[in-house]
């Protein structure tokens, strides 16, 4: 986008550049928004999920009176302000007790959102045991046929994956895999469970996995949904042409993991090769040649005669 008003400082320029549309995007930021009226359960849940996603998240913990399904402009304004594209909104009312709206935005406009009711909540602090360290990339498990059949659930699965996946990475530390989020769709409900991974010996290279409850554990029921039209969704999925990195030629790895490269070189000019510097090996001084050559010639001539 071309700006008519130029940023006045370098810092301001950098700030705007950071927010511009890019080929390789920043990790998505999440807003956790507390509604106008919330219950203890909702607040606690927002807090705990915020803790799990703290690296790329902001918490709006004042009373924010808004109803995302009725009027989405306020939420879009929030997203504009903090450059976030995922949100979780919590509220509590007589009609919709313990209500959570989870959704995402595309270009600062609502793409999908789904309203979930908390039926059962078990806090992270009610469960004993170690928790995962902050900022770990979770493993996501989706269970249930519905996630592959029903259109709403297909989108919900994608939304959950988008919400929890965190930063897209190229490499992962094997010992750093310590968090599992399981989302199960069954019996008309959605179960969200968090576990901590314990790597045990198995007698082979791959470890035996044991899980430990970590929390929060939530049972959801699906309430209202608002899903993007196919057209808009397709537009949001469009990837830039040059996002794919070209394969680098002539580079390989051997069994030990070290990088090998093949270099094509031109024939080396051995005349200009710098060898050990010695007086006797010196050449190419034109003055010396000029003085020495006539003597040689004269010598030769005397020999001949």
């Amino acid at each position: 986008m071309q700006r008519v008003v130029k940023p006045k400082t370098q810092r301001g320029k950098r700030f705007l550049q950071e927010r511009e549309a890019k080929i390789f995007e920043n990790p998505k930021k999440t807003m956790f928004v507390k509604g106008g009226n919330t219950s203890q359960t909702v607040t606690q849940m927002l807090k705990e999920l915020y803790q799990l996603k703290k690296d790329n998240a902001v918490m709006y913990k004042r009373k924010n009176i808004m109803r995302p399904f009725e009027d989405e402009t306020q939420l879009e304004f929030f997203s504009q302000r903090c450059d976030a594209s995922l949100f979780m909104f919590g509220s509590h009312s007589k009609k919709r007790p313990n209500n959570i709206v989870i959704g995402r935005l595309f270009d600062h406009h609502i793409l999908d959102m789904i309203e979930l009711g908390i039926e059962n909540f078990k806090s992270m602090f009610d469960i004993e045991g170690a928790k995962c360290s902050a900022g770990t990339k979770p493993c996501m498990m989706f269970v249930g046929e519905q996630f592959d059949i029903e259109p709403d659930y297909i989108r919900l699965k994608n939304l959950f994956a988008d919400f929890f996946r965190g930063v897209v990475i190229k490499q992962i530390r094997l010992q750093g895999l310590e968090h599992v989020i399981m989302i199960t769709a069954a019996e008309g409900k959605i179960y969200l469970r968090n576990y901590k991974i314990l790597l045990k010996k198995s007698g082979s290279k791959t470890p035996r996995i044991e899980l430990d409850d970590m929390g929060p554990s939530v049972d959801f029921s699906v309430r209202r949904t608002k899903i993007a039209s196919d057209d808009l969704y397709r537009r949001s999925l469009k990837q830039p042409k040059n996002a794919k990195v070209k394969k680098r030629k002539n580079i390989s790895r051997d069994a030990f993991g070290s990088q090998l490269g093949r270099i094509h070189m031109q024939k080396q000019d051995l005349d200009n090769l710098q060898t050990r510097k010695m007086k006797g090996l010196k050449r190419g001084n034109p003055n010396k040649d000029a003085t020495s050559s006539p003597n040689k010639k004269s010598k030769q001539s005397t020999e001949e005669s």
Binding site: A21, I23, S85, N158, A161, I169, Y233, S236, P240
Partner: peptide
């Protein structure tokens, strides 16, 4: 070394 993600996930902002 992780391979590229295979699940298509929407972008945050349109392609520049």
């Amino acid at each position: 070394q992780l391979p590229d993600p295979s699940t298509p996930i929407p972008r945050e902002k349109p392609v520049p």
